[in-house]
Structures are given as C-alpha cells and as structure tokens.
Design a protein around this nucleic acid. Structure first.
Lengths: 133, 133
DNA sequence: AATGTTATGTTAGGAAAACTAACATTAATA
DNA sequence: TATTAATGTTAGTTTTCCTAACATAACATT
C-alpha cells in the first residue's frame, strides 16, 4: 500500500467533528447517532470533556447506515454486513501481503527514491499525535 | 475547472469545525484565533447559537498567519499580503495598480526590517493539505 | 387481541465548551 | 519613559452536548 493511501486513511480517521456538525452532514438526529453507537456500528472518539468527536470515516459510515435502514435492513443486518466487510478488508490486506520478495524489493527501492527526492512529503508519525486526545 | 476541483473546494469551505478542534489543529489559543478574526484575517461562519464554525480553508489560513507571525511579519503586513493575494487571484493587472511601485518597495522594506528583528524561530509550519483529501 | 420489540422522539438536569467584554502582561519601539 | 501590538486571564452568560429515563409508532409474535 502506498504512503499516500496510508496518510489519507489517517486523515479520514481524525476525530474533528462535534455531533452537531455530523447531524447536519447526515441529517440524522442526535438520538439516532447515539443509538447506532450504542449498537457498536460506529466508535467515535471522546474529547477530554466526554464530547463525541467524529471523523470523516464516521460520517461515511453513518450515511451507509442511513441508506441501509431506508432500504429496510435492520440493525442486526447492518451489523452483520459491516462485519463481513471488515473481514473482506482483512483478507484483502492479507492478499496484499502475499507479494513476491522481488516485488517487495522493487517497491522499497521506489519508496526510497521518492523519499529522497522530497523529504517533506514523508508523513512522520509524530506529526499527527497532537490530533488525538 | 474540473468537477473534482469544484467539489473539493466546496468541502474545504464548509463550516465544519468548532474552535476547540481548530485550536488543536493549529496549536493557537482561542484568544489568538478570535484576535485574527477581529482583524478580519479570517471570517468563520456562525452557528444558530453564535458559535464560530471553521472550514478547512480557515485552518489553512490560520496556519499561514501563524507562520508569518513567526517570521516577524505583523498583522498589518499579513493583512496587506492577504489582500494582495486575493486581488492577484481576481486580476493581477488590477492588483498592480492598487499599490504603486514605490509604495510596494516601502512596504517590503518595512517588513524586511520587522522580520530581521525576529531571528529566533524560523521553524516553518507544515502545510495542512497533507491532512485532508 | 394482547404483548413484545425496534427504532426513534422527548424531556430533565447537569457539565463542558464557547461567547463577549474587560483588565493584565510582555516585548518591542518611539 | 510611555505607547503599542499581541496575547493571557478572568468573570459571567449562553449554547451545546451529555446521560438516563420514559413515551410512542410501527411491526412482529403469541
């Protein structure tokens, strides 16, 4: 997986939004959003003061939930579908790991050359730490 | 302009973030952020209940302000530079007319002297664009 | 028909976050 | 020395969000 994809995944999982913003973005009520969390369909972060903080991924998931419910799927069904999706994602990651050694070496060489060309484009772990409570 | 660029511009200007989130993203105090608004460097939206709501573009602007201040440029200089940038975006020819060459040289000399006095922190703030799509 | 379940609404009381406005402080400058 | 610019701090108020409980409409089960 590329460095760009990884950092974009980090960005989309950053807990930035309060519930009010998420309500507007999804047109869901606070009651609905909390209910879906209660049923473990989303896991928003919490601020120091216990406020839920949502990521863009959370918003995506909520829109999926809303869509599925409007299609008549109930919470149990949605939960099952999400579990399946997660398993599929894990399997695809595992499949991705099964690249040949030579392919791996080729990718690493590529990454090294990239990193050397523009040092600042390499996302460093410490840079994001302040965004998490 | 492509459809993708337009929709991404829409997302970047959407008022999503409360001041607390912006404080974390920029490492600025609420006092500083409100002060910069007071001096018209940013124009955050307001919620129905009068809370400031910031866009990702606002966060970018705040990081620019922070960087310029750390370089020793003062508020008046930043305001002028932002105005110039905005005018340049609209009409570069028009922008040149608004400030005579001698005026421009005077401003730049002023800012250079200001900046030279602040030698201590030349650390550049990272570009926010790394953190979102 | 009566009862239970699911998803959501509503309300109350409390805590956190953000607001404005005023005064304080610190470093740089005239 | 006095002034100014940028920021800190505090107080009092309003808005937003929290949990917990009870209410309800639609639907399913007995």
């Amino acid at each position: 997986m590329s460095e760009k994809k990884k950092s974009s995944e980090l960005r989309r999982s950053m807990p930035l939004l309060p519930i009010g913003t998420v309500m507007q973005l999804t047109e869901l009520s606070a009651r609905q959003i909390r209910y879906y969390e209660e049923h473990d369909l989303i896991q928003p972060h919490r601020s120091d003061g216990n406020r839920r903080m949502f990521s863009l991924n959370d918003v995506d998931t909520l829109l999926e939930i809303k869509d599925m419910l409007e299609q008549g799927i109930n919470m149990a069904g949605i939960k099952k579908l999400f579990d399946m999706k997660k398993n599929a994602a894990v399997q695809s990651v595992q499949a991705e790991k099964e690249i040949s050694d030579s392919e791996l070496r080729r990718i690493l060489r590529e990454e090294m050359r990239n990193a050397n060309r523009h040092q600042k484009s390499t996302l460093r772990q410490g840079d994001l730490s302040r965004f998490y409570q």
